[in-house]
């Protein structure tokens, strides 16, 4: 008896789920084209101005302000099962948090140093860029955790996590090359930042920079 009624209930929900002609249902975008929407004039006639419900109802039951379509609906267990408590691991909790903060605090002097001193030695420069890479990696990790929930998109979560890991390794190797073959990150930014700043003085010789012989004093 119970099984029979459940089956008929399921059939009903299946029918509801498959019918695209319901008004005010939050169906996905393509279905909305098929649906007949009442014209503005008839809607105004039907809904008196003082009725708050008639104005609120379409807002809360349509997908008109739907920024993100609902993801896959994953149903795990029944309503009577308790939520699984994740395994306690300090590496995923307090240690991770503390390391993140220590790294951020460490970035403060590393960021100020180039501005204060004008330039930094290669070791400090390398420390800055590799701290920034780890900081970025952790930032991207928390974005993946926030926006790709594991229970809804398990495959995409795994794919993005590994994509990030690979990208971080590639970027770290890239900056190792840059640090060893080029002038270093802070010096490079400085050069690009001030590139072409003396264009206006080209061709106009500043007399004070000329020596007694009429040649530039500080010519390198």
């Amino acid at each position: 008896m119970a099984a029979a009624s459940r089956a008929s209930l399921l059939r009903q929900t299946q029918f509801l789920a498959s019918s695209p002609t319901r008004l005010f249902s939050s169906t996905t975008q393509p279905l909305r084209l098929l649906r007949t929407t009442p014209s503005i004039s008839s809607r105004l006639l039907l809904a008196p101005k003082w009725s708050a419900v008639s104005r609120a109802a379409p807002f809360s039951t349509t997908s008109q302000r739907n920024l993100l379509p609902p993801g896959p609906q994953v149903i795990e267990g029944t309503v009577n099962d308790p939520a699984a408590v994740p395994k306690v691991d300090p590496l995923h909790g307090s240690y991770h948090w503390t390391f993140e903060r220590l790294l951020s605090v460490g970035l403060i002097p590393l960021t100020i140093a180039p501005f204060a001193a004008g330039s930094v030695n290669p070791a400090l420069d390398a420390a800055l860029i590799f701290s920034l890479i780890v900081h970025s990696h952790m930032g991207f990790q928390s974005m993946i955790t926030d926006y790709i929930p594991r229970h809804k998109f398990p495959t995409m979560r795994k794919a993005f996590s590994w994509l990030l890991n690979v990208a971080t390794v590639v970027v770290a190797i890239g900056f190792y090359e840059f640090e060893t073959n080029d002038v270093g990150v802070t010096e490079a930014i400085k050069r690009i930042w001030h590139a072409g700043e003396n264009d206006a003085t080209i061709g106009k010789t500043d007399l004070s920079s000329l020596g007694h012989d009429g040649k530039l004093k500080n010519l390198k």
Partner: peptide
Amino acid sequence: ILAAQRRH
């Protein structure tokens, strides 16, 4: 079926 219904 339940998942499809929940999407609505």
